[in-house]
Design a protein around this nucleic acid. Structure first.
Lengths: 193, 193
DNA sequence: GTCTATAATTCGATAGAC
DNA sequence: GTCTATCGAATTATAGAC
């Protein structure tokens, strides 16, 4: 009997295993077994396990970064930008929960030079968020608060979304989630003078 | 020349490497090299790498759980309980940042039966927090919001603290951090009717 | 308590037939 | 595109001398 594994199916299976067991603890044999093929066959789809991680992590990382750049350079007011960031995160996370899980949890296993590039990218992302929050406080759109604590809390809230979404088995309505997240996070930061 | 490695020094070195490279990617040789001894010598201090993970994860996990239980069963009002939870987290995290990092990031590498026990413990922790927030809304101490989103955001904010604290190299004043975190998180949730 | 030496296993990856 | 077979390296852990 002829097997026919699509690249897409292979990737999704690998991503789920990476989430369940972690990248390092997931062997090529694990992935192959889940697909009911032999491990050697996987090398028709990828060059190496390391390259697979690299491709997947950077693909989703730049989706976040590029999306945020557009928001950052827009003419929205700071509080509107924060809302747009929440929405961007909800959209990307509900669309690609396991890729986000990989991004958040497994970037440490990138090669040294690629890890550096990843951290530069992430640092740039965080700096844009920090700037938006700082500007919101200057304009008194956001209430006065410790900038680092506010930035870190904001980022944490949206970063952990993938975990919750996967736990719920994707049974959450993304549109409703977007609304609830925006409401909650923004209302907590807005100025009520 | 006689080497003298204390168990405490060994543990701290191992924890830092686990944080830097991840538990699975850190070999016994890595730890040994950092301590300038041979890998075989490490087995005078531990029974196995797996047992070391288990000991460290459950020790800190039950510190969080027991601390929360005391708060949960206290006569504080819900909003005061939330503040106490933030303070508990800041205290444990600044006192043991690398143990918290292990707890948050490496529990997946526990053995299957132990992983189940861990998740039971964590589920119980999260349920207590959820109950407190729900009660706070009932009493109208907290503003009305989606319970799951509020619980998840609250937990996320305090869960990622270790990452920020380690990044800053412990240069943060724990007392001031406690104040800023409590202020920010609580003010965002309290009812301003 | 620390070492050398090594057993036992596992893993990523390749070669080559079909 | 998938298989069988296998290589070479790395890893956890133990045995036993000092």
């Amino acid at each position: 009997m002829e097997r026919k594994i699509t690249r897409e199916g292979f990737i999704e299976t690998a991503l789920e295993l990476f989430h369940e067991k972690g990248f390092k603890a997931t062997t090529m044999r694990d992935i192959a077994k889940a697909l009911e093929i032999e491990a050697a066959t996987l090398y028709n789809y990828i060059r190496s396990k390391q390259q697979l991680l690299d491709d997947l992590v950077f693909e989703i990382a730049y989706q976040f970064h590029d999306g945020l750049s557009d928001i950052y350079e827009s003419s929205y007011r700071p509080s509107e930008k924060l809302k747009a960031i929440v929405n961007l995160n909800v959209r990307l996370t509900t669309a690609h929960p396991y890729r986000v899980a990989l991004l958040v949890g497994e970037w440490k296993h990138l090669q040294e030079d690629r890890q550096k590039e990843f951290l530069d990218n992430r640092g740039s992302y965080e700096q844009m968020v920090r700037n938006i929050i700082a500007q919101g406080m200057e304009l008194q759109e956001l209430r006065s608060m410790d900038l680092e604590v506010a930035t870190y809390s904001f980022l944490s809230s949206i970063r952990w979304l993938f975990s919750w979404y996967i736990e719920k088995g994707g049974s959450v309505n993304p549109i409703e989630l977007e609304k609830q997240m925006s409401d909650f996070i923004l209302k907590g930061m807005q100025n009520n003078d």
